[in-house]
């Protein structure tokens, strides 16, 4: 069982690195209705449940790409459900003035991977504005490289560059432009 899980994770890792979202999307669609049914026992608010499900898949994406789940023995579905439940209960806790948490299973941090707070940080807001002002091509390139962790080859195919060196050169240019914007903001 554990071996099958690891194979599933490895396939997912390889496909994401290659810029292929098909397998990930397949899992997303396969588990969605079951998760909504499962989460209804915590809240009737479907929007909140779907929001937590999105968070769970974002966490899954990041943890697969950063190889944080190599020790995981549970199935992918169990993992997604545990993250989804954890984020849902935390969202409910934040939203309500009163929340009962003692003795509720699932309030503990899931065992595998890293579950970051997915709320936006204000400190990154200015930087994000600079990133947006770079234009779509640079934004996409930086996101693919630093967030989606695409290989240079996958970036070349996705963004339509003629070779890997062009991707590298363009990435350096985007970073340089971004640093200039940051420095400009600091001096003004």
């Amino acid at each position: 069982m554990g071996n099958n899980n690891q194979q599933a994770l490895e396939s997912l890792y390889q496909s994401l690195r290659a810029g292929n979202m098909g397998l990930y999307k397949g899992y997303y669609q396969e588990y969605k209705n079951d998760f909504i049914q499962f989460a209804r026992k915590f809240t009737p608010d479907t929007d909140l449940i779907v929001d937590a499900y999105h968070d769970a898949f974002i966490v899954l994406y990041e943890n697969v790409l950063s190889r944080q789940l190599e020790e995981m023995t549970s199935s992918l579905k169990t993992y997604v459900f545990s993250i989804g439940k954890y984020t849902l209960l935390n969202k409910l806790k934040k939203r309500h003035r009163t929340v009962y948490t003692e003795g509720v299973e699932g309030m503990e941090m899931p065992q595998y991977g890293i579950v970051e707070d997915l709320e936006r940080s204000e400190s990154a807001d200015l930087l994000r504005r600079h990133i947006r002002s770079l234009g779509d091509a640079c934004q996409s390139l930086l996101i693919l490289f630093y967030y989606k962790k695409y290989s240079i080859e996958a970036m070349m195919h996705t963004l339509g560059y003629k070779n890997e060196n062009t991707v590298k050169a363009y990435k350096s240019r985007c970073l340089k432009k971004l640093k200039e914007l940051m420095q400009g903001a600091q001096t003004s």
Partner: peptide, 23 residues
């Protein structure tokens, strides 16, 4: 590292939009 944090947040927003589009 700060830059990467900001890129990560942008990336998450895009991924969230993609998940929403699948819905």
């Amino acid at each position: 590292t700060h830059l990467q944090q900001a890129i990560r947040e942008e990336g998450r927003e895009r991924l969230r939009a993609e998940l929403g589009a699948w819905d």
